[in-house]
């Protein structure tokens, strides 16, 4: 299992350890954090939800794609759901590879694909009491692009 969804704090150390391998000379990771602003609005918290059965399948597919496309050794990703506060970690991606280029590229690929394809949503709670469901307009229109 290379992709997981958790309703409790993510454990980046465990995922990093799972990437250790004697054939690897490089490791990259990406952490997505809850930030206190979105398009000029002060954010108080983020509420993540998912369609778990399909999210797990699609997440696994993304990691499998990455393992096929890039010369990497291990790739892991975990995503949080539930009500997160400012500074909490929402997503963690870890990749090990023989050489650094592939590790960087695969890590970038995985986080981009997760944002595009996995049925996970966030509801933003703003400091002024309002809420919204932000999403990428280009994603919604099915336009291929990078974040």
């Amino acid at each position: 299992m290379n992709f997981s969804i958790q309703s409790t704090n993510l454990c980046p150390d465990e995922l990093r350890k799972a990437c250790l391998d004697q054939t690897s000379g490089g490791f990259t990771s990406f952490e997505g954090w809850v930030r206190n602003h979105h398009e000029g609005q002060a954010v108080e918290s983020l509420e993540y939800s998912c369609y778990e059965e399909l999210a797990l399948k699609e997440g696994e597919r993304i990691i499998s794609d990455a393992l096929e496309r890039f010369s990497i050794v291990h790739a892991k990703c975990a995503h949080r759901v539930g009500h997160l506060q400012i500074g909490d970690m929402a997503v963690y991606v870890a990749v090990s590879a023989a050489h650094r280029d592939a590790a960087f590229e695969a890590c970038r690929y995985i986080i981009d694909e997760i944002k595009h394809r996995v049925p996970i949503w966030k509801k933003e709670h703003y400091v002024d009491g309002s809420t919204a469901w932000p999403h990428c307009e280009a994603c919604a229109k099915g336009i291929k692009h990078s974040h």
Partner: peptide
């Protein structure tokens, strides 16, 4: 059947 609104993970 599940209709999936625009996703917003990460």
């Amino acid at each position: 059947v599940v209709f999936i609104p625009p996703v917003a993970g990460g």
